[in-house]
Design a protein around this nucleic acid. Sequence first.
DNA 1: AGGGGATATGTGACCGTTCACAATCCTGGC
DNA 2: GCCAGGATTGTGAACGGTCACATATCCCCT
Lengths: 363, 363
Amino acid sequence: MSVTGHTSPSPAESTSEQAAGGPSRQRTRAVSIRDVAKAAGVSYQTVSRVINGNSYVRDSTRDRVQAAIAELGFRPNSAARALASGENRSLTVVTSNTTLYGYAATLQGIEEAARAAAFSVGISVLESSDDGHVRAAVDRAADSSGSVIVIAFDHAGTLALQAIPDGVPVAAAVETPETAPQAGQPWVWIDDGEAARSATRYLLELGHPTVHYVAIPSTTHTSRRTAGWRAALTAAGVTAPEPVGAGWDALAGYQAGRTLARDPAVSAILCGNDDLALGVIRAMHEAGRSIPESVSVVGFDNAPQSAFYTPALTTVRMDFVELGRACFALLHSEIEGAAPIVPHPVGRPELIVRESAGSFHHA
Amino acid sequence: MSVTGHTSPSPAESTSEQAAGGPSRQRTRAVSIRDVAKAAGVSYQTVSRVINGNSYVRDSTRDRVQAAIAELGFRPNSAARALASGENRSLTVVTSNTTLYGYAATLQGIEEAARAAAFSVGISVLESSDDGHVRAAVDRAADSSGSVIVIAFDHAGTLALQAIPDGVPVAAAVETPETAPQAGQPWVWIDDGEAARSATRYLLELGHPTVHYVAIPSTTHTSRRTAGWRAALTAAGVTAPEPVGAGWDALAGYQAGRTLARDPAVSAILCGNDDLALGVIRAMHEAGRSIPESVSVVGFDNAPQSAFYTPALTTVRMDFVELGRACFALLHSEIEGAAPIVPHPVGRPELIVRESAGSFHHA
DNA sequence: AGGGGATATGTGACCGTTCACAATCCTGGC
DNA sequence: GCCAGGATTGTGAACGGTCACATATCCCCT
């Protein structure tokens, strides 16, 4: 048990306090550099030098200070440090989700890069796209020191991004923008329009008369992904069927799949992500339609499980981890003020052909 | 452009600075309560009262201050606030993974509960169980203000938990302990021993002569999950086969599955998590063994996708989100010092019967 | 012997906020 | 018309560090 920090320890008092069962004002004064300094017989500044690796410290002094640090169990207070230095080595990730693959992987990339740059990372989850919740999440994140990264793949994220007050260093991972964003917008994204087009073309080349699309929600008016799919279709001279809007998860895919399964003309489906594809496949299976013989399904994202589905999922690889890293890099250069910030796409998605799509067999 | 904080602004100097292209010491002094106070014609303390909702402020004054706050775009500096108040409303989650279902869901639960209690949450990822990395992660997390939650489902996490210095408020989500932990250990877990036993019993009752086990890595000497599986087997009078140790992901399950598939005597497999089960099923499929006709598979965790696999996965529900919430609650009560901290299991796992396990058909 | 420059160490101020403790202003009761 | 006491507001001192700027101390060189 550690000492409770009474300046003048009085057994009687501490006993009565316990008896009273009061809120036990445990303001256990943490050990500070001044305490360490006293113990080591040096000035607080020397202690500061030691913990910051300043070379202008005699070895013997350094040893003494480090011994005192270990002895007292001193740990620097990062709040004080941030305050005094004005440094800004912390960032908060604002996101509406932490478990969906795309979000989680992006977060992972951000964390990796941030860790490498000695930034600490916090998370602030958007409970909904309700105005109050968005504001709350942004307030939590946009501390006056500290910067922000927004994962703006969805409506809530987009709102949060817009709500970030001026003056806060910010970067965002966004959905592929409809038109090239102007310089200065600290955005990164994975350009998936072309990927959607080539996945669709792939399906068309397999002989399918058309390709249906089960879409994730989009924040833009005309999602690039949808546009790519549509472009491939029109290029092939077939009119695009109505895309079926779904959510993000397997259940949403399942529901969309049930509808699609009723239409015998449906033979190829492109899905906005792998979870959706999983749900669609499940629905098809229940409807007695086999994959890929009766209907071909292509997913998006290449979630780690997708290779192990039966049939293994043909999908589009999206490097979200790299996206996260790039997003941090953008933020970092923004903070450093070194390079001008230019929005840019990250990586190039690639179609991973596996088993869930096959050539068209006439019914 | 905002002022760069020269005490005596000198246009010439700032120009030369730009021309020099130096590191652009952008110490853009943030707006503080003192600035707001000046603008509103009150003292800084009054501003402090307004932002903290203190009731001893005249309405008209409050309005004036709030107007000034909005006008200047003031945002409180949480570092300064934490420093001055000694408050500790932030926590860092130490975890070795953020994407695996169990970890991600636990993190989600922690975040939810923390948010509700107005705590800010940070994450510190353990890169490996290497000593240096563990120490680094703990140092990052164990700031002198602030508390820590460790997700200690694995070796790295356990090491990190042990490495947390004394005096840091800490709670941990752990693997089911071998023996009841002593009071005072701030631990929560999901008691999965019984669940493993009943899942195994379920398989046995389906007529399977024995049940194989594809295990996740354990931090304890004899994992409770393994023990439960073994207990069910011995209770039924069958000697337990050697459990096959695997990793955490589908690939590990796939590899274990390939081995198991070669043995025609294998008819029922319990897996340490759903990803492992997915991999096992894939391997069986490739080996020409159908699920559940030729071999039955039961997973663990009930990841959201598992209901949509084909066949839908029979698995054990584990409420990780609740675990995360409970873990935060433990930490919170520890900080408040109100209730004594008692380690305890959370929720009760439950077998979810779906399609991947069926009755034994003699080969 | 007297610089001069690197090496070591110390002192005072300040970062933006809260806390403890006045000080002032009001208002109703007598 | 005066006073107790709540409502309001202000002042000085932390909080635990860093920064800028001395101040020693040491060693080498002329």
